[in-house]
Design a protein around this nucleic acid. Sequence first.
DNA 1: AAAGCATGACGTATTTTTACGTCAAAATTA
DNA 2: TAATTTTGACGTAAAAATACGTCATGCTTT
Lengths: 110, 110
Amino acid sequence: MAEAKTQLFDNDLQELAQLFKALAHPARLQILSFLASQNACFSGDITEEIPLGRTTVNQHLSELKKVGLVQGIVRGSKTNYCLDNKAIELLEKSGIEFLSKLNKSNCNDC
Amino acid sequence: MAEAKTQLFDNDLQELAQLFKALAHPARLQILSFLASQNACFSGDITEEIPLGRTTVNQHLSELKKVGLVQGIVRGSKTNYCLDNKAIELLEKSGIEFLSKLNKSNCNDC
DNA sequence: AAAGCATGACGTATTTTTACGTCAAAATTA
DNA sequence: TAATTTTGACGTAAAAATACGTCATGCTTT
């Protein structure tokens, strides 16, 4: 019964646009940058780095997670976030200056 | 007298986010793709390629122009659009599969 | 000059995104 | 066990993006 809503665009285009959308906010870029420079990556630490409220930062984290750029696992009462494979690959391959300058790091906890 | 509205984010981050935002819509990616494959690039031709109304496509073109990915010059009653340097550079350097697969072309009219 | 195209500007309804407050749950600490 | 922390879920107001219709302008054709 679900509407078969006609696809206007190619799937690849749509997916790529989705990825770019995730990168299209300075807070999210800053989060990626921070995660790339850190091994430990508590949710709380990230919050302190970003000039926005905690819940907003959390929301941005969710979006990064949704497109597979970031990964988060629960450790007791805290949550550890780190770059997911997709992000690391992107950082490595991308010719985009900002991204490639980031150090890719492996979270030693994820 | 203008409010000195405090900057929340670094300028570079903001600018890069702006660029990604321009890439964050399938229609705009398709426009870039089309322009990259064409030498001639009438506004009208583009409109026919994209499954959206004319004015909407025009709006997307404006956004691409705003961030310097696309360039348009008036030729009589028509307007020629083509990739701007920024886009060509991006296509060349980017490790992002979709982008680097596009052929960069020079509009022979711009 | 008149009629017909191609474009861009402008206004606008709808949908998304953004930012944040409040709540509830799970885990730590006291 | 009670108080505190840390976090995610949910709701929501405000701002931005999206898609289009309409109008005006400036070329082309006729």
